[in-house]
């Protein structure tokens, strides 16, 4: 039963486990403080982006602008951060606020504009990445070393990346999803009409979900800034696809209503680490996108195999 409900996320756990074992055999060095740090750093940006995607997917939508918000926050952070700790903190807060604003735009257009999430976020994808390019026409910027160290360093076997992720997960995500809002978000994605009949304010719930998604995408951008120590308006592009892949692989249902954080987070680490494993295994890095796209497609088909079992054609069509 567990497998049926969380089918693909169980698969993600197994896949990540096997991947790490294989990686260890090829490269024993990963079982060291340094290795742990490298592994943790690799997946954190995508894990945060996947959470951004997850909250929108839970409402029954898809957010194509996640990658653009990652780029935008990366550009803002790297451009305005300065080197004084106070300005760093101020810019981090500003960046998260920009992310929230981006989410608000998406949410209002979906909830009150009554436009399909796909079209809204496809259009805002261009708007946000255009803004990112305005902030930072050329890659570059300045990121103080202490900022980078605070997020990508480590203390023994404990990478700070894990600390950052856990803070976002347990101090932000979990409390929100365990509040009435969290249930409302899942209810809206599950059965919007039923949610309305149960007295849930559907537009408000949608907007808050998109705002939350924007904040997490911005957090992903902040982490990415610590990793790359520069700003690049094109850097976030791949996070749209990979966040969708992580969410689907992590057991969430496209169409809404079902999904919990651990699955997408683990899937995000898998999708990130597999790239270095491919590299370690001597496979050309050109295969990166083949794997990312291919994994998404395989997981999609796997997750929807039930359609080949449903008896009534009409229910398939009306779905």
């Amino acid at each position: 039963m567990i497998f049926r409900r969380y089918n693909t996320s169980v698969l993600a756990v197994v896949a990540l486990g096997l991947l790490l074992i294989y990686y260890y055999i090829r490269q024993p060095l990963i079982l060291s403080p340094f290795g742990a740090k490298i592994l943790a750093n690799q997946g954190t940006t995508l894990a945060l982006a996947a959470l951004a995607q997850l909250v929108v997917v839970l409402t029954g939508g898809v957010d194509l602008s996640v990658g653009a918000v990652v780029s935008l926050s990366n550009c803002i952070a790297a451009t305005y951060m300065g080197s004084h700790p106070a300005s760093v903190i101020a810019v981090c807060v500003l960046t998260l606020a920009v992310g929230a604003g981006a989410g608000l735009v998406n949410g209002v257009l979906v909830a009150y504009g009554r436009i399909q999430p796909i079209i809204v976020t496809l259009a805002t994808l261009y708007i946000f990445s255009g803004l990112a390019l305005m902030v930072r026409p050329q890659p570059g910027g300045l990121v103080p070393p202490f900022y980078a160290n605070a997020l990508t360093g480590g203390w023994g076997y404990l990478p700070y990346a894990m600390v950052a992720l856990f803070v976002m997960l347990f101090a932000v995500w979990t409390p929100l999803m365990r509040s009435r809002l969290g249930t409302a978000i899942r209810a809206v994605g599950d059965n919007p009409g039923g949610a309305h009949m149960s007295g849930i304010n559907v537009p408000r719930t949608l907007i808050l979900a998109y705002v939350m998604g924007g904040v997490f995408a911005a957090a992903a951008g902040l982490y990415l800034t610590a990793q790359t120590t520069s700003g690049d308006a094109a850097i976030g592009t791949s996070y749209t696809l990979n966040s969708v892949a992580a969410v689907v692989f992590g057991g969430a249902l496209l169409g809404g209503g079902r999904g919990v954080a651990p699955g997408p987070v683990i899937a995000a680490y898998f999708l990130s680490i597999i790239i270095s494993v491919l590299f370690a295994a001597g496979i050309s890095p050109f295969y990166q996108s083949v794997f990312q796209g291919g994994i998404l497609m395989v997981v999609l088909v796997f997750g929807n195999l039930w359609t080949l079992r449903t008896r009534n054609w009409l229910t398939i069509l009306k779905n």
């Binding site: 796909i118 050109f286 295969y287 996108s289 083949v290 796209g293 497609m297 999609l300 929807n304 779905n319």
Partner: peptide
């Protein structure tokens, strides 16, 4: 993907796009 597996074209073709991106790199080195 769309007609048989009833997947939404949005994610399915997004995956296809990435697959082809990789395929282009691999094909031409």
């Amino acid at each position: 993907g769309v007609a048989v597996f009833r997947l939404h074209s949005l994610v399915w073709t997004l995956g296809m796009n990435a697959l082809l991106q990789g395929a282009s790199l691999v094909y031409t080195n």
